[in-house]
Simulated scan of single mutants.
Amino acid sequence: MKSIFRDDVLEKKVAFVTGGGSGICKGIARAYLAHGARVAIVGRKADRLEDAARELSSETGRECVACPADVRNPQEVEGAIEKTLDRFGTLDVVVNGAAGNFLAPAAQLSYNAFRTVVEIDTLGTWNVSKAAFQRHLRDHGGHIVNITATLHYAATPMQAHASAAKAGVDAITRSLALEWGQLGIQVNGIAPGPIADTEGLSRLAPPGYVEKLVQTIPLRRLGRIDDVASCAVWLVSGAASYVHGETIVVDGGAWLPGMGGMMSF
């Protein structure tokens, strides 16, 4: 999909993208690079991350570096932030996209499984935001974009853990926007709906579900990774300079009918 933005709209910006080795956040990293930014992608699997960084650099002609880290570990997060600052000298955009999910009825959901998803999504968002704030954003301003979901807008079966985790992410978005806006830190979220060609949709959707789901989406199609990536570019491009503390839903209206928003990936 051809971009509506100038190729250099993010020139000289540096982005730090967690979960950037795959899926939606890899797409966001690609879009940032294509529009002039330099990008550090973050994830737990070093080999996969290095492969993604090489692919993105080769594809876009821009510098993408891999910063392996577990967002649940503040020390690892701080190390990844430092590596980014050492490499690029600045940090303008933080995208919190690292996430974990699976299907499980609440009655069968273990204590550890619930905790793990909350730790990756909610605690990870906090750890990265806090580390970036302390190391750079507090004194220089910038953008934080939190990737969330629509699961908790109603009630989604077999997603109590992810719903709670993403509700926490939305709360962090609003709180940080309130407290850090005066420092020139613009904080927003993006809530993707069902997005084609993602591991979440292929792994979590039961057989036959996608076809039925599409018929409940007002726009009658699945989302594309580019749909989410374009929103992520817009939020940090300067065009959305007065959008603050908001979570923008990018789902074709999927959550509006209730059951149509039964799963967000």
Rank of each mutant, 00 (worst) to 15 (best):
P194N: 00
R62N: 11
G193S: 04
I225S: 10
D251I: 00
L151M: 13
G23F: 09
R224E: 15
R54S: 12
K212Q: 13
P105T: 15
R135N: 01
E246D: 13
K166Y: 06
I225M: 13
D51I: 15
N127Y: 03
A160E: 09
P206Y: 11
G141S: 14
F265Y: 01
D7F: 02
L123G: 01
G193Q: 01
D8P: 13
G27D: 08
L49C: 05
V42E: 09
S22V: 10
E63I: 14
V250K: 03
A107I: 06
D86Q: 11
D226G: 05
T150A: 13
K26A: 14
L49P: 09
D92T: 05
G89R: 02
A229C: 04
V250I: 14
T60P: 11
G189H: 02
L219M: 12
A66S: 15
H152P: 08
L178G: 01
I217R: 13
G21R: 09
W180L: 12
S110N: 08
H161R: 11
N146T: 14
S57M: 03
H161W: 11
H161T: 03
Q182W: 07
V169R: 01
F16E: 02
V249I: 12
A171V: 06
Q215I: 02
T198V: 00
W255K: 07
G43P: 10
G200N: 03
G200A: 05
